[in-house]
Amino acid sequence: MLTDVMIEDRRWHALGLEPLAERAAAATLAHLGMDPGAFEISILACNDARIAVLNEDFRGKPQPTNVLSWPSAERGALRDGGVPDLPLPGPDAELGDIAIAYGVCASEAALGGKPLADHATHLIVHAVLHLLGYDHTRSGDADLMESCEVAILCKLGIADPY
């Protein structure tokens, strides 16, 4: 399996996060021409309190957020809008770690009038792209990342979230 999901907040079970995360991560890698069976991603499905601690520890922001990601290596493109250097399969095929918070995710989905499963899928796709070096700090990078997200979600039958 591509994803190893650890569920701390039981509400994620009702959503079926494990197969949802596997599908989202596999679709993301496949879209980029990568073999999903050759890589690993760890996912922590937690609550808002837990992600707030992680957000403060790693980003200096003491509040909950929807999703966080920790790539196993720096893969970002040097040129704004450039495609990141994608990893090759091999003995060190761990792409990184993701944490996703139930409360923030559910609130954003409700506020946006979106099904929770669709929004969670979008956040997993977004986080996997971050693990692969995609970012949205610079405008060209943001355009590239957003277009990838939209294309991947479309393949999964999910409407453009933007």
Rank of each mutant, 00 (worst) to 15 (best):
L68M: 09
S69I: 10
S69F: 06
S69T: 13
W70Y: 07
P71H: 02
P71K: 05
P71M: 04
S72A: 10
S72W: 00
A73R: 11
E74K: 13
R75H: 05
R75T: 05
G76W: 14
G76V: 15
G76S: 12
A77C: 10
L78T: 11
R79F: 11
D80Y: 04
D80V: 03
G81Q: 06
G81P: 09
G81N: 02
G82S: 03
G82H: 05
V83I: 13
V83P: 14
V83N: 13
P84F: 00
P84L: 06
D85I: 13
D85T: 15
L86F: 01
L86T: 00
P87F: 06
P89M: 04
P89R: 02
G90Q: 00
G90A: 04
G90P: 02
P91F: 11
P91Q: 15
P91M: 11
D92V: 07
D92A: 13
D92G: 13
D92F: 10
D92T: 13
A93R: 14
E94G: 10
L95T: 00
G96Y: 00
G96T: 01
D97W: 12
A99K: 02
A99D: 05
A99L: 09
I100E: 00
A101M: 08
A101H: 10
Y102T: 00
Y102W: 07
Y102K: 05
G103R: 08
C105R: 06
C105W: 08
C105M: 11
C105Q: 09
A106C: 08
A106K: 09
A106Y: 03
A106N: 05
S107M: 14
S107K: 15
A110V: 06
L111W: 12
L111D: 15
G112S: 13
K114P: 09
K114R: 15
P115E: 12
P115T: 14
P115Y: 11
P115F: 14
P115G: 14
A117G: 11
A117M: 13
A117V: 10
D118F: 07
D118W: 09
D118T: 04
H119W: 13
H119R: 15
A120I: 04
A120M: 06
A120K: 08
T121V: 06
T121M: 08
T121D: 05
H122V: 11
H122E: 12
L123R: 07
V125Q: 02
H126D: 06
H126W: 01
A127H: 07
V128G: 06
V128W: 08
H130W: 04
H130T: 00
L131A: 03
L131F: 00
L132E: 01
L132Y: 03
L132I: 01
D135H: 13
H136M: 11
H136L: 13
H136K: 12
T137K: 15
R138I: 04
G140E: 02
G140Y: 01
D141N: 09
A142S: 12
D143G: 14
L144P: 03
L144C: 01
E146H: 15
S147T: 12
S147R: 13
S147L: 11
S147C: 09
E149V: 06
V150C: 10
A151L: 01
A151H: 07
I152A: 09
I152E: 02
L153G: 04
L153Q: 04
